[in-house]
């Protein structure tokens, strides 16, 4: 089990409902339709790098647990849409990942801390890759 959730008590309050609603509004996806089949994780090519599998991200969003924002998964997601193609409930999970990234970026969070990137690396990394990494397919 991911350290993100280990031993955690998820105490439900009105805040949870608001968080869920926000993700729903931002993503435009019917998140409540997820019945935890796991088909998205089965199809996802990036699971080896993720701390939470896509299905678990969906579950946490359903519960409105904000700890999901601390997960690496939305940043690992390559937006290949395999999950969306396989979801039996018609949910575009990649859209949900995008919504989570948006929420973080709007809170002035930078996934990539530029000051941690060394001079050598900076010279080698193409500028477009740096920008993508900062914004991750996000406007």
């Amino acid at each position: 089990m991911s350290t993100l959730l280990a031993g955690r008590v998820i105490r439900i309050s009105e805040r949870n409902g608001r968080f869920s609603e926000r993700v729903k509004a931002l993503s435009g996806e019917e998140i409540d339709l997820c019945f935890q089949c796991g088909g998205c994780s089965s199809a996802c090519p990036m699971t080896s790098q993720m701390d939470l599998l896509p299905s678990k991200v969906m579950r946490l969003v359903q519960l409105g647990e904000e700890a999901v924002l601390k997960s690496r998964t939305p940043w690992i997601c390559s937006t290949c849409f395999n999950c969306a193609a396989r979801c039996p409930r018609g949910i575009d999970i990649a859209n949900v990942m995008e919504a989570l990234r948006q929420m973080l970026l709007r809170s002035k969070f930078d996934h990539l801390k530029l000051e941690t990137v060394g001079r050598e690396e900076l010279r080698e990394i193409p500028p477009i890759a740096l920008i993508s990494s900062l914004r991750k397919f996000t406007s």
Binding site: S2, L5, G38, C40, S42, T47, L53, S55, P88
Partner: peptide, 27 residues
């Protein structure tokens, strides 16, 4: 195993079944 399999990948003479174990947060 609880978890829907949506990918079958050929692996030599066998077929690789890849799916989540929903109880575990693991593939």
């Amino acid at each position: 195993v609880k978890g829907k399999v949506t990918e079958i990948i050929p692996e030599g003479d066998r077929a690789l079944v890849r799916g989540e174990d929903m109880m575990l947060n693991a593939i």
